[in-house]
Amino acid sequence: CAHWGAQPSEQTLDTWSITGKIGIRTPHESVAGFLTWQQNEHAFDIYVSGPLAQGATRIIGDLDSVTIEQGGQTKQGVDPQQLIWQELGWQFPLSNLKHWLTGNTAPKSKAKIIKQGDRLESFKQDGWTITYLRFDDYYHLPERIRISQGNWRFTIIVKTWSV
């Protein structure tokens, strides 16, 4: 049976940073690049760079402000998810991702647990399916994460966690 809003770990991480890879597959393109993501409470600093450092994208902001730097241009906005969609064409569930990346469901909406071992392994939330394919053996934090909805798919590989 489905447990609604199960919280696998009590202490929710809100200050962390990761370096790794991100694969973004959208209906019209596929991007594979290097990812650096620093989360500090509500503030985030995300850097995605293409293979030859071209097409590097930086997304900085917090709950109600965001700046996107790409291809030598800067765009500002108040709604991070909306600006990311408008400027980058990515449906990027940013406010949920902060929780999903650390192996947790997001607090503000219901999550339908699909698979729960000693760690939450797969769940559905806000239309997205989140699957943790591998955990790192030191922090037991996700190391390989697939987040998908229809033909949108994010694959995130975490190479280094710093918590």
């Binding site: 790794g20 890879k21 694969g23 594979a32 293979p51 694959t155 590989i157 190479k159």
Partner: peptide, 11 residues
Amino acid sequence: WVYDEDLEQVT
């Protein structure tokens, strides 16, 4: 070809 071993994907 852009081959990413971690992502197990080649574009």
